[in-house]
Amino acid sequence: MRNLYVTDLKRILKDKLFLVTCILAGVFALINPVLNKVLFEILDMGDMLGTVVNAKSMLFTAYVPSDNLGFIMPILIAIVVCKDFSQGTVRNKIISGKSRSVIFISHLLSAATVTCTVMLLHGLLTLGVSLCFFSYQDTAFTLADLGYLMASLLFEMIVYFAISAVVTFVATLAKNIGICILLYLAVSFGSSIVGAIFQVAGAFLDPASKAYGIVEFINALNIYTSAGIGLGTAYTLKDVIYILIAPIGLTAGSVLLGIKMFARKNLK
């Protein structure tokens, strides 16, 4: 397993798309805070900086799965994973006696390692650049804020691990780069649209009503709306459950279904 994981990791790191991803991560980390700063200055809303837009909001915006790198990164990783099928190199692993479940897990772990590492570094870079223009938040930064920040980053990584699981599942299902991209776009756009509909619906409901609770729960199940991470100052147990239920469920579902499908799949 370890051998296969290291090999898959090297395969991703040697791919030109990985270099493209790293460049994009740097560009987005630089451009987004600068654009926000320039925009607020042009609109003469500089006094709102630190409250509406601050380094903390920039950091967690960088992690929204339907925007910027959060949207592009999984597609690039999906292409690299899919290449193992489209170039036929996955045959080397099967002929070498590796089990299909181990091959799937290795694909997932290598994709997740790269995705989470790049996203983490992208977030930290965004935070660093943002701090050059904005304060972290409109109140003083405390030890509790540090704990909240660390927990939020951990939750974001769990979300991106789940997205990697979806990507691996889609790549294994499609085996073809074009179909793989289309499938991922369908999943990503579909989830974002559904998420937006429920968020709008929630805005019209009484927060004390049962209907609101249901809508809130459905929203929590949608990782593409990234609901609840980094928006407050502390997490309640309910928040943690709502944040974790979707990524854990998605990861488990993708792994179980992926392994089951791959186990009986005829390969060219």
């Binding site: 791919d15 030109k16 170039q87 036929g88 190199t89 080397n92």
Partner: peptide, 10 residues
């Protein structure tokens, strides 16, 4: 099988 399974970008 059919064609060599090699990494074309390496």
């Amino acid at each position: 099988v059919e064609s060599p399974s090699i990494y074309l970008n390496m």
